[in-house]
């Protein structure tokens, strides 16, 4: 019977025993609920081995691509090493460049010690040497060899003000990840894509749109960047240039002071989203509200990918 490796602990499954039951038997702390492959509480990631298709039924493509599976309905044919999704590996990176994208958004370029393995749109956690940690989405493609982050400078934000005022190229930071399932997957090159962000939610979308184009996506791509006013926009010239060379890409800045509600603006432009795929990133209220609106406009729930940026409490 197959052997399951969990954080260095091994368990051999009994006949007819699921991976979840095997792990619980050795005292592993694995979240679970329905035990029927439905509630997705027991989502794990196979770092080696094949979990089997039956344990991935109903999961979003981005999860399947990361070898995620539901432990309660997983009866593997061979050995597996499993971990909590998003745990990732801690390593280090050199800060090699910083430049201002707007008065409040800093572009940070990192050179990781090992070649990057992320998918554009995933996030990583950045560690300062005193342990201060913050998560940022990745705007670069793995084959670019470097990691690009967009850091919004938050008043009293400990990491962002340190990066803006004190950090300088050449210093080393810790990184952990990548994690997250908001990224482009191949397989439907002519599907229409809706990409919508507020603020630095543009970072993952800047990566996702370039990844999609590089993979030869030929269906229409609509990229919306919402902000309170024109000062909140950045990368406009780059995105306009990208749209100019790719006829299937449309880039639309949306300004609350001129266009009103950003979600209303997007939904009024796209009242029917059946068959579309969506990527929605940024402010949590915007993300939650637009997810619901695109779903009610016909987008299938499994096609909606999102990442809500929750600000860290100032004291942490």
């Amino acid at each position: 019977m197959p052997v399951i490796d969990w954080e260095g602990q091994q368990v051999q499954l009994a006949a007819g025993e699921s991976v979840l039951d095997g792990l619980l038997r050795i005292g592993a702390d694995v979240a679970h609920s329905c035990r029927a492959g439905v509630c997705q509480s027991c989502l794990l990631k196979a770092s080696s081995g094949q979990p089997g298709m039956a344990s991935q039924a109903g999961l979003k493509a981005a999860w399947i691509e990361q070898s995620c599976f539901l432990a309660c309905v997983c009866y593997p044919a061979g050995d597996l090493a499993v971990e909590t999704p998003g745990a990732g590996v801690r390593s280090s990176a050199e800060l090699i460049g910083m430049s201002w994208l707007s008065p409040t958004v800093l572009r940070v370029i990192l050179q990781p010690e090992a070649p990057p393995v992320h998918r554009a749109g995933q996030y990583l956690t950045l560690f300062r040497d005193d342990g201060l940690a913050r998560s940022y989405s990745i705007a670069s493609l793995a084959d670019e060899g470097k990691i690009e982050l967009h850091v919004r400078i938050v008043p009293d934000g400990r990491m962002s003000s340190w990066l803006a005022q004190l950090a300088s190229p050449g210093i080393t930071v810790g990184i952990q990840g990548p994690a997250g399932n908001c990224f482009y997957t191949t397989g439907a090159p002519d599907q229409p894509l809706l990409l919508a962000a507020t603020g630095t939610g543009l970072a993952p979308l800047y990566g996702i749109v370039r990844e999609a184009l590089e993979q030869g996506h030929c269906g229409p791509i609509w990229l919306y960047h919402g902000a309170a006013n024109s000062e909140g926009l950045y990368l406009q010239a780059e995105l306009e240039a990208l749209a100019a060379t790719h006829p299937n890409l449309r880039y639309r800045p949306v300004l609350r002071d001129r266009n009103g509600s950003i979600t209303d603006f997007i939904i009024n432009t796209h009242p029917q989203l059946k068959g579309w795929r969506g990527f929605i990133c940024g402010n949590p209220d915007f993300v939650n509200s637009l997810k619901k609106r695109v779903f009610l406009s016909g987008m299938a729930s499994r096609e909606i990918h999102s990442d809500a940026f929750v600000p860290a409490p100032p004291s942490s």
């Binding site: 609920s33 329905c34 029927a36 439905v38 509630c39 997705q40 509480s41 109903g58 939650n288 997810k291 619901k292 779903f295 729930s301 909606i304 999102s306």
Partner: peptide, 13 residues
């Protein structure tokens, strides 16, 4: 929404 969809699947099942 993602949590709700998973809960609704459990309910329907």
């Amino acid at each position: 929404m993602d949590h709700q969809i998973a809960k609704q699947k459990a309910f329907l099942t």
